[in-house]
Design a binder for these strands. Structure first.
Lengths: 237, 237
DNA sequence: ACATAATGACTGACTGGTCAGTCATTTATA
DNA sequence: TATAAATGACTGACCAGTCAGTCATTATGT
């Protein structure tokens, strides 16, 4: 098989002290951040984005350790050295990737929470949101990456929990509590364990990554079925 | 110790022809597989087991590529070379690991299916089975490994689908169909998507691996809550 | 029983290939 | 032209897999 792998915390390299070091994955060292000609900055942002997109493709296909930065570079249409103008090292690139791709979704869910519509309708919107904005995009891969590599990046897991999960869960809890009090959900199970709401989403992500070629899964239908389950009137808690 | 100094004897070694090669990850080459003194065989089985256990610990902490066989060997209390007496290469070791740790559970579930007891009681047993035999054991880690590395080992994913998942799903479907016909489940959602049954299990495995230190999850309670949800009488499908 | 030989499980130094990160040089931009 | 950006050849750490050599155990001979 060969390949080998390589990882190890990157040694020390006390040599140049901290030529880069401080700038945490921003653009190429911009000595002065004056208003500057946005022509350049735009191009830089574009490159940065290209690198992140290429990195996601490689990381999610190969995993963190097995991904070669040469491949990321080739996919992004640049040389390997260029990556180091935009990111401190491989690990920074990985972390930036997770950060930038996952955060945006949170706001949307919190907005949903504050909308004053029947919770059942909200749930349907949530399903659509998931299918369209997560399952239908790169975010699906980011989630699988998070599951796969999380144990080796405790800091990332913490960030993800703090910035994404806990906020989503809090929003869901508020939303579900309201629904339960109105009698719109038959059991308080999901109020106690909002994780149950997300469960089919997780199944969808994992299934699609591993088993879709053996048995395709109609994700939207499954999630709708799950919503039906939750909102079955029936006995009160 | 070896010493040797490596004299590069012009390779050759045509003598024993194929000393290893053919034996596919079985014990050290057993020239004759006569009834043999089981003392030795027992010891070999023990070593093999030790290697697998050590490998699971390392693989599930580091992932496949980042795991060093030197570390596996140290953890198993043997030399690296010994691993190659029991497994063809790193990948074989990994695959054997998944295979041997996951298969046993299937039979148990199929046995449950054939028992003739109220489906609700069965469901409770299923929860217990999961909490005790999966969540409480190494199998939890094997599942996470499968999710993390599956995309890079299509063969393994296929094996897992064929030997484990499809059978579990088939058993569940039978079981749930019966329950639905008896009116024991309020919706046919789970008959169409038995994956929904396993969803909280997946959540439990993933959550425990990544976020338990921030917010512990009472897995048994969550799964019981989920079962309650499923068996809400309420409206017929 | 005792000595001697054969076996094969086990070891670990070593090799060849890999790849993250560097930096002297080249190219683009202002 | 001067400065910043981009390049890619290069280096050194790293590790899967190998195999000559060791030695405890078992078999054979006297």
């Amino acid at each position: 098989m060969a390949r080998s792998g390589k990882s190890r915390p990157a040694k020390k390299r006390t040599a140049k002290a901290a030529p880069r070091g401080v700038s945490f994955g921003r653009g190429p060292q911009t000595g002065k951040s004056a208003p500057a000609p946005s022509a350049r900055e735009a191009k830089q942002a574009e490159r940065r984005e290209a690198i992140l997109t290429a990195a996601l493709a490689e990381f999610s296909a190969q995993g963190f350790t097995a991904t070669r930065l040469d491949d990321v570079a080739r996919r992004a249409g640049i040389a390997k050295g260029t990556i180091y103008l935009y990111f401190r090292d491989k690990e920074s690139l990985f972390q930036e990737l997770i950060r930038t791709r996952l955060s945006p979704i949170v706001g949307t869910i919190e907005a949903l929470r504050d909308a004053d519509v029947p919770v059942r309708a909200l749930a349907d919107q949530l399903v659509e949101l998931f299918v369209r904005e997560v399952f239908g995009t790169q975010r699906k891969d980011v989630i699988r990456l998070m599951i796969a590599e999380g144990p080796r990046f405790p800091k990332l897991a913490e960030f993800y929990y703090r910035e994404v999960l806990s906020r989503i869960i809090a929003a869901l809890r508020t939303l579900l509590k309201r629904a339960h009090e109105r009698g719109e959900v038959g059991s308080d199970a999901v109020v106690r364990f909002p994780q149950l709401i997300a469960a089919p989403g997780l199944v969808a992500v994992v299934w699609s990554g591993l088993f879709d070629r053996f048995e395709p899964l109609d994700v939207r239908a499954m999630m709708k079925a799950h919503v039906d389950l939750l909102f079955t009137p029936g006995r009160a808690a």
